[in-house]
Write a protein that binds this DNA or RNA. Structure first.
Length: 840
DNA sequence: TCCACCGCGATTTTT
DNA sequence: TCGCGGTGGA
């Protein structure tokens, strides 16, 4: 590694040398050297940002400019100098992982003094506030948080009930519209006032929105967007409640400010408002000592606000993020100080140059140029595959090379625009025995069996949650069908009782004896479990794991999975066991945590939170998930038109610019090596379609990229070249010797044409490849070679790579790996169990 | 009420 | 390609 002048890049593992405790609790005088040590190694801009004191500070932090360092030192400085108690600090990050990291780093700087800070995501912070203040707004402390799946389930029932689909309403459409309104803090009454009631479509939407709101309320539940919006409403409706938090948080710091939406922005505004004298008087009267904080007029000044962001990395406009929040910060907070961080401590100059020239094409931005003292580094590597699989093979091969050269798998990441692209990558990675992990794909907590188990817990924690009850009513099968469910629902509505109470009253509904018994049994089970978690229980509240085990056993859910004929149910049962293990783990980490705390934590996990730096695997994720992360080597795949920029973004205002930022974010994640790849054909909807190189590729200066196989060559309009390449059958150009075309890529770029007929030839290859070669999903049936025995010296034939000789066999059982020297494509590693190989 | 079968539509990104 | 919803028979 080239030596950096700044020892502290934003994610480095370098231990932090400072020990904040050494200064002792008092001495302001002696703290000078501690202070100096705290800020040692920061560049002048970073230092200015960390030390500035004033009402409002905007840190415009380019990618990799060490903003986490600045933030943590800023917090540490406030604590060390005794300007703030830990409890007066609120730091908001985008993911739980970022929050945990920040806490850790502050702790490393100042030690246990850091206890008591709120460092969390917007959502977690709001949940904390809402649980505390639930009664004020007509909820109970045990409210449920509905994730997008729950929201969809609820809307589905509502839309069906209203026959709204005939008017063209879809679940996704309604959900998006409601979400958007909530992000703009438009509640149902406000919306109703402005709605055009002569439009039947709009009337119907209003009804959907109304029912949705009503059902959430009666279920004692908030959806994701409510968490923010309701907190803002709470503060606005109850200034005294707001004042409690305004008084408490004196220093508020917000990371990734460019991705805040209007609701989040408003929340920050509320929290940083000064407290009027009258309310301050009341606080004082209630015993909150605030008089020392008041100014001569009796006002408690607003908290100081620090926001960090980079408008070039704003990639969540589709979700309501408003780039104006950061662009207009100085107008919103007059007198705000602005500090620019442009020195990059992460990437090589080549990578930064590529990033700079790409983002320069976005016209409405403040010019900002990242630079580094590290040096040029390696060139960016480009590759054009014939298909998504070909591209994936290139990625796998290059990863193996990097690994062989000493790079840890965990320092390598593969990014893509859409989750669908994981299929090809996964297939190739499995066959190549490459350890990988997909971040945020089908998330563990989104699996049906996990949601089922969680619904049992939710039903116990929040007896009003009808949605959870409906979910488990006939899971496992108890003979309680939709008709019965509807009857229970209307009984509850008619008698003004909860769904849960309706279940207890099943005896008086005139249902069949079998069904009645089943319902009563479930109701009894839940009631017993509710007693188990009741803190008033003389035996004390049972651990979550025990309750869960009890529910799963007594309901027969686990038995149903274990005795099922469906082979996938075995894996599902294992997942459920895994969930039980998670609850144990939770109890270990949170000795005071109860059922509600567990449910909250699970509801708020994000894709990026799963990343475990020590896992020793390559990380695969979408470009969105990649934000805020960094890796030694980064592969950006699928750099094609209609994928990046994505086809769906074309019609949206600002769409292409946001896609460009997404590309920019991807590029700037790379520390040392960057690989850009694309394919000439890509499978979608099961059919292969022709793909064109992304327009963004041309925005990177040609001399920065070394094309192992350029779109120009692979895609040549003359056709001769591409045909020649295609003719080179078995090798498939996968990484092998065919490189050296760097020059051809630089001189004549392919930008001259879409070349319509150009490479239909690529499709010509498809038929001679038998379908069965590509196993389906990893989860489904995969090719299985059983106990094929291979030893060094054996000759084998691979359906893609041709013939080769086994040089070694490593691993055990199903994970045995053959190291093979192929005649045409060189050395490869193959997972014996599933590789398309035969022994010769 | 449950299960097997068939046909169609979908796909952007996520706290 | 796959997963979902709708249909029809047991």
């Amino acid at each position: 590694m080239t030596s950096l002048s700044n020892p502290d890049t934003s994610n480095s593992a370098t231990p932090i040398i400072l020990d904040g405790r050494q200064g002792g609790p008092s001495g302001d005088g002696g703290s000078d050297s501690a202070h100096e040590r705290l800020f040692a190694g920061l560049n002048p801009q970073q230092r200015e940002a960390a030390e500035y004191r004033g009402a409002a500070l905007l840190i415009v932090a380019g990618a990799g400019s060490g903003k986490t360092s600045v933030l943590t030192r800023r917090i540490a400085g406030l604590l060390q100098s005794r300007e703030a108690w830990p409890s007066q600090i609120l730091a908001i990050t985008f993911t739980n992982k970022a929050a945990a990291e920040m806490r850790e780093r502050v702790q490393a700087l100042v030690g246990d003094t850091a206890q008591g800070m709120w460092i969390s995501t917007f959502h977690s912070a709001c949940v904390r506030i809402l649980r505390r203040e639930a009664e004020t707004i007509g909820k109970t402390q045990s409210f449920t948080i509905y994730d997008s799946g729950d929201t969809r389930a609820l809307l589905k029932r509502i839309i069906k009930g209203l026959d709204a689909d005939t008017l063209g309403f879809t679940v996704a459409g309604a959900a998006a519209r409601i979400s958007k309104l909530k992000n703009e803090l438009t509640d149902i009454e406000t919306y109703a006032r402005s709605a055009n009631l002569s439009d039947p479509q709009e009337v119907m939407f209003l009804e959907i929105f109304r029912q949705y709101t009503r059902q959430l309320r009666s279920a004692n539940a908030f959806d994701f967007d409510d968490l923010i919006a309701e907190t803002v409403f709470l503060f606005r409706a109850f200034p005294k409640v707001a004042a409690l938090y305004q008084r408490r948080f004196r220093h508020i710091l917000v990371d990734e400010y460019q991705d805040t939406n209007h609701a989040q922005y408003s929340l920050i505004r509320e929290l940083t408002m000064p407290i009027a004298p009258a309310i301050a008087d009341e606080l004082e009267a209630q015993g909150h000592h605030v008089d020392r904080m008041r100014d001569p007029l009796g006002v408690i000044p607003g908290a100081s606000l620090t926001v960090v962001g980079d408008s070039d990395q704003s990639i969540y406009a589709f979700r309501g993020a408003d780039i104006r929040n950061i662009v207009e910060f100085e107008r919103d907070f007059p007198g705000a100080k602005v500090v620019l961080l442009e020195q990059n401590y992460r990437s090589t100059q080549n990578i930064l140059s590529a990033a700079n020239s790409v983002i320069a094409n976005n016209f409405d931005r403040k010019d900002k140029k990242l630079w580094t003292a590290v040096g040029d580094g390696d060139k960016i590597i480009g590759f054009t595959g014939y298909s998504g699989h070909d591209e994936a093979q290139f990625v796998a091969d290059e990863i193996e090379k990097l690994h062989a050269a000493g790079m840890a798998y965990s320092e390598i990441a593969v990014f893509y625009r859409t989750n669908a692209q994981t299929r090809a990558l996964e297939e190739i990675f499995i066959r190549s025995a490459l350890p990988y992990r997909i971040m945020g794909g089908t998330k563990f907590y989104e699996r049906a069996e996990i949601k089922d188990a969680m619904a049992y817990l939710t039903a116990v924690a929040n007896p009003d949650d009808a949605l959870a009850l409906r979910r488990i009513l006939n899971t496992p099968k108890r003979g309680i069908g939709p008709a019965t469910e509807t009857q229970l629902g209307s009984y509850a509505d008619d008698n003004g009782v909860s769904f849960r109470q309706a279940m207890r009253d099943a005896g008086s509904l005139g249902l069949g004896p079998k069904v009645t018994a089943a319902i009563l049994q479930l109701a009894g089970l839940l009631d017993t479990a509710t007693e188990m978690v009741d803190p008033a229980n003389p035996a004390g509240a049972s651990p979550v794991a025990d309750v869960l085990t009890y529910l799963l056993d007594e309901s027969g859910y686990l038995d149903a999975l274990r005795n099922s004929r469906d082979p996938q149910d075995e894996a599902r049962a294992e997942n459920v066991d895994e969930l039980v293990a998670v609850t144990r783990e939770f109890a270990r980490n949170n000795p005071d945590g109860g059922l509600i705390d567990f449910l909250t934590e699970v509801s708020l996990v994000a894709a990026a939170d799963e990343i475990d730096d020590s896992s020793g695997t390559v990380s695969l994720m979408t470009l969105h998930t990649a934000k805020g992360l960094e890796y030694d080597a980064v592969f950006l795949t699928g750099i094609e038109e209609d994928l990046l920029p994505h086809r769906m973004s074309a019609n949206e205002p600002g769409g292409p610019a946001e896609e460009r930022r997404l590309f920019y974010v991807g590029i700037t994640r790379a520390k040392k090596r960057l690989f850009l790849s694309l394919a000439m054909t890509r499978a979608q909807f099961g059919e292969t379609a022709v793909a064109m190189p992304s327009r963004y590729l041309q925005e990177i200066p040609a001399d920065l990229i070394d094309w192992k196989q350029s779109p120009g060559t692979a895609n040549g309009r003359g056709g001769s070249q591409s045909r020649a390449l295609n003719a080179r059958r078995p090798g498939l150009g996968s990484g092998s010797g065919s490189s050296g075309s760097g020059s051809s890529g630089s001189g004549s770029r392919w930008n001259d044409s879409p070349g319509s007929g150009g490479y239909g030839a690529g499709g010509g290859r498809a038929p001679d490849r038998p379908k069965a070669e590509w196993p389906n999903r990893v989860t489904g049936q995969v090719r299985d070679n059983g106990d094929l025995e291979l030893v060094a010296g054996d000759r084998i034939r691979h359906s893609d790579f041709g013939d080769g000789r086994v040089t070694a066999v490593t691993g055990e059982g199903a994970k045995r790996v053959a190291h093979v020297q192929f005649e045409k494509v060189g050395a490869k590693k193959l997972l014996i169990k599933i590789a398309p190989i035969e022994k010769l």
